[in-house]
């Protein structure tokens, strides 16, 4: 029997880690052993995480498929549900629906240079892809991670960023540096020149809406093809199954057709960058 799209299933918090002053990472295990074996997802897909009484939050899975039967998510505390999630302790129960949405095209990335560009918490949805590549780095040509944050302490996955430099080139930039900062200062766009991106590379972008257009301009300038530039969009969502209409974006549903879109798909979309 297939899982309900509306009724969530139980999971248990097995670990919590503070990632930044406002972001926490949660590791979740399945309560139902059958579900633990049946559950699968692809990097880039999202779930709804809920504490009954508080609401439902859309979160992209941040762990790799190989980490199953546990999954991880990163949660920024902003609303009622995410604040309640931040208060969770190990062993407590949460409710999950999903996975929903499309996923990264790993086959297309084979042998190619892959550029991950993230602004702020935008690194979270891309972590699953990075962790997947980490398991078999030889599958892609080269991995370059370009990440930006307001201040050094705002970076999420700080320890990951350190280990990722073992198999990837990691470029970090902040808007405001402190005295210990040794990385770059300024917008993520500035990192593009530093990273010496191959024009056949595949770029995947995630971050605040204002970040996209300037970055795309830079990447196009380097000769990257429109269908090799991918963007992850964020919208309000209530269902995840193309019903509630909150996530529609021009002719697309972010929950069904996305959250990852190629620039080719979005170029003429009049609502993608509002």
């Amino acid at each position: 029997m297939s899982r309900s799209n509306t009724l969530p299933f139980q999971m248990k918090v097995t670990k919590t880690v503070g990632l930044s002053p406002t972001v926490k990472s949660l590791k979740l295990g399945f309560n139902d052993p059958k579900l633990a074996t049946a559950f699968s997802f692809e990097p880039g897909q999202f779930i709804f995480l809920s504490i009954p009484g508080y609401g439902d939050s859309v979160l992209t899975i941040t762990s790799a498929v190989a980490d199953l039967p546990q999954i991880e998510v990163a949660v920024r505390s902003v609303g009622n549900n995410t604040k309640a999630i931040h208060r969770l302790k190990i062993g407590e129960t949460v409710f999950v629906r999903g996975p929903f949405g499309n996923h990264f095209d790993l086959k297309k990335m084979a042998g190619k240079e892959v550029i991950i560009i993230a602004g702020g918490i935008g690194l979270a949805p891309l972590r699953s892809l990075i962790k997947t590549i980490e398991k078999e780095p030889q599958n892609v040509g080269e991995l370059k991670i370009l990440a930006g944050a307001k201040e050094p302490e705002d970076f999420i996955f700080k320890s990951d960023l350190k280990t990722w430099s073992d198999f990837a080139q990691v470029y970090l930039t902040v808007d405001q540096a402190d005295k210990n900062w040794t990385g770059y200062i300024g917008r993520v766009t500035k990192l593009i020149k530093e990273a010496k991106i191959n024009q056949k590379a595949i770029a995947v972008l995630c971050g605040p809406p204002v970040m996209f257009l300037p970055l795309i301009k830079e990447l196009e300038g380097l000769g990257l093809k429109d269908d090799n530039i991918y963007l992850m969009l964020e919208r309000r969502m209530k269902c995840g199954i193309g019903k509630c209409q909150h996530c529609t974006c021009g002719d697309r549903y972010v929950c069904l057709d996305g959250p990852t879109f190629s620039w080719l798909e979005l170029k003429d979309n009049w609502e993608a960058f509002l």
Binding site: P52, G53, G55, D56, K238, C239, K243, C244, H246
Partner: peptide
């Protein structure tokens, strides 16, 4: 028309 909102009540 079928768009909807959800809300949790205690």
């Amino acid at each position: 028309c079928y768009c909807y909102e959800t809300e949790d009540n205690f």
